[in-house]
């Protein structure tokens, strides 16, 4: 009967789907770049230094009190990670359709940088007219970088700082709610946006060996974990049982037919 052929087709398509999904997952299994220093200074208040802006000197708090802030530490002479950090961040922000109110405060940690250098730097990324982005300098570099545990080292042979790429998330009370070290995926950025808006994310994964079947892929967009291939493993028993029962029905019908003959 046709129904049998239909069943067969269905089994086949289920198996093919499973295999396709599995192979997809394997190729996307990713390394995590988690750095334990990210956990330092969480929920501490950032040093309220005076910053120099185009509108004149003002306290850092006037920025973060108006809206949650991502603080980025760079210097304009950098050949290294600063440029990719900024361009990556601005790209990610453009790609994410973010409804939340927040600002990006780019502060130079190089005493040689003037406000005009920062302006030029902003132009380089076409960010000079973007209201979300503010490029500033400060005279109080030391207290600022100490309060976020950022330790650039000057290397006089290459005339460059040896430093990390660091994003610091500040809520409107100036609390450091999340840090990101290194250039990371947009998931991390979204988690930061949640946390600077005082949303509670109940858990996060640690770096670990690649796991073939992990249960949920953590997705901070929703603040929840998303189902990945592991869920398929959890659904598999019901699916397999379904297939078993269908096969049994088929078998039962066949046996009855032979009995009739």
């Amino acid at each position: 009967m046709d129904i049998y052929r239909f069943n067969e087709k269905m089994y086949k398509s289920i198996f093919i789907c499973t295999i396709v999904l599995l192979s997809n997952y394997i190729s996307f299994a990713q390394e995590s770049n988690y750095n334990y220093d990210e956990e330092k200074d969480i929920y501490k208040v950032i040093s309220n230094v005076t910053i120099e802006t185009e509108q004149g000197n003002q306290k850092l708090s006037t920025i973060y009190e108006t809206s949650p802030t991502i603080l980025v530490l760079i210097y304009t002479r950098c050949y290294g990670i600063c440029n990719p950090l900024i361009s990556n961040l601005s790209e990610q922000i453009q790609q994410l359709d973010i409804k939340k109110d927040f600002r990006v405060l780019v502060v130079s940690f190089d005493a040689a940088d003037r406000l005009s250098d920062m302006e030029r730097y902003a132009q380089q990324f076409d960010l000079q007219n973007d209201a979300r982005w503010i490029f500033v300098t400060t005279k109080q570099i030391k207290p600022l970088i100490e309060s976020v545990n950022f330790n650039p080292k000057w290397d006089s042979t290459i005339q460059q700082f040896d430093h990390n790429a660091l994003l610091v998330g500040l809520n409107t009370n100036g609390y450091i709610t999340k840090k990101i070290i290194g250039i990371r995926g947009s998931n991390e950025l979204q988690a930061m946006l949640k946390e600077i808006n005082n949303e509670f994310i109940v858990s996060y994964p640690l770096p670990r060996k690649n796991m073939l079947f992990s249960c949920f892929t953590y997705n901070p967009t929703t603040g929840k974990s998303e189902l990945s291939i592991g869920l398929l493993v959890m659904l598999a028993p019901a699916l397999i049982t379904f297939i078993i029962v269908l096969s049994l029905i088929k078998l039962g019908k066949k046996q009855r037919k032979t009995l009739v003959k």
Partner: peptide, 15 residues
């Protein structure tokens, strides 16, 4: 060579 996800295994175990 193969490492399990403790969360997945815990789900399966209690299932």
């Amino acid at each position: 060579g193969f490492v399990n996800d403790p969360l997945l295994v815990k789900n399966l175990t209690y299932f």
